[in-house]
């Protein structure tokens, strides 16, 4: 067996799996950053925390219910609240069905909401979903194919987000869902008292348990992936890499949604230093400046009105926020220097 054949048989199927795990892990890190931000806001924005938690619980419960439905276990009860979600099956199945339901519960929330958004994005920009054709099916080509598919998608997504037209109902709906997904891809906590904290380690522990609990099923899944990969090589198709690219696109979409949501949360966090009146004024700056800029550009018949309108309003909002923080608070340490508030012992006065 030549080196290339060995590569195709043994290593090549692993390439998109590694790629997907990498992007999922990046997604997990962004979720953790968001949870840290939400933790900072917990004391002053209780309702916001409950809202984001509800979205997370909602997606998780839907994934669990979907797991029971697809394994034909049926659903006997469905409970959903801000702090807690629970689904009970009609028939408690064991073995591979139980394992699949748990996979839906533990891994589903990372991808299912993104798939919904992906479907929406497909309606707005189907150019983003291009697949690279393959010829050699080696590890390197699979990896490059996976990366190339994700790069093409990311480029179109960035272009779309950069030129989003919020006067277009479709774009506005996508943007709102995008922010909602970013805010609540995972819940921060489960239960009332005692509260079970949901963080990166909680998710990883659950997934590890499900993998180690039934390693045979994982081996079967990997074996299935290998067989699917060989069939692709045999028929000269790129479906294997495409399947993982599909998950990769969902992951990319989730990462961008998380970045946008984190910027939004950081904005809310810095505005806490302002009084309520100025906070409302700053929050209204974004939509008002956008509407005014769009009307102005429409009247002047300027090109790129949507792009300049969006980024112009973001710039104006950032400028207004910084100016208010500079003038009204000591956030930039301009009213009182750090040295002046330090005591002789080095601590704060």
């Amino acid at each position: 067996m030549s080196g290339e054949a060995f590569d195709v048989v043994v290593f090549a199927p692993l390439a998109p799996i590694f790629g997907l795990i990498l992007f999922w892990f990046i997604q997990l890190i962004f979720i953790e950053i968001q949870k840290s931000l939400l933790n900072q806001l917990r004391s002053s924005h209780d309702a916001l925390i409950r809202f984001t938690n509800f979205i997370g619980i909602f997606f998780q419960t839907i994934c669990h219910a979907l797991g029971y439905t697809l394994t034909r276990s049926g659903i006997s009860s469905f409970y959903l609240s801000v702090d807690y979600g629970k689904v009970d099956p009609k028939k408690k199945k064991s073995g591979v069905f139980e394992w699949l339901v748990n996979m839906f519960l533990f891994v589903g929330p990372f991808f299912l909401p993104s798939f919904l958004l992906l479907a929406y994005f497909f309606l707005l920009s189907n150019d983003a979903f291009t697949i690279m054709a393959q010829s050699e099916f080696t590890f390197a080509e699979n990896f490059i194919g996976f990366g190339s598919n994700l790069f093409g998608f990311t480029k179109d997504l960035v272009f779309f987000l950069g030129s989003i037209d919020l006067f277009h109902p479709g774009h506005l709906g996508f943007f709102l869902l995008f922010i909602l997904l970013g805010l609540g891809i995972r819940p921060s906590y489960i239960g009332k008292r005692p509260v079970k904290k949901v963080d990166m380690f909680y998710d990883l522990k659950n997934i590890r348990y499900n993998i180690l609990h039934k390693p045979v099923y994982v081996l079967i899944a990997i074996l299935g992936a290998y067989i699917f990969s060989y069939l692709n090589v045999f028929f000269g198709q790129s479906l294997y890499v495409s399947m993982f690219s599909f998950f990769g696109w969902a992951s990319i979409l989730a990462i961008f949604a998380l970045i946008y949501a984190e910027v939004l949360l950081f904005w809310v966090y810095v505005l806490d230093d302002l009084s309520v009146g100025f906070r409302v004024l700053t929050l209204l700056t974004l939509p008002l400046s956008y509407i005014l800029l769009r009307i102005l550009f429409y009247l002047l018949s300027w090109p790129f009105a949507a792009q300049i309108g969006f980024w112009g309003s973001v710039s104006i909002t950032v400028f207004v926020t910084l100016m208010l923080l500079y003038r009204l608070t000591n956030k930039f340490k301009t009213l009182l220097s750090m040295n002046s508030i330090r005591g002789t012992s080095g601590g704060k006065k």
């Binding site: 309702a47 409950r50 809202f51 509800f54 609240s81 801000v82 702090d83």
Partner: peptide
């Protein structure tokens, strides 16, 4: 309701 649970 859900809004009530969020906003107490």
């Amino acid at each position: 309701g859900i809004l009530g649970q969020i906003f107490s």
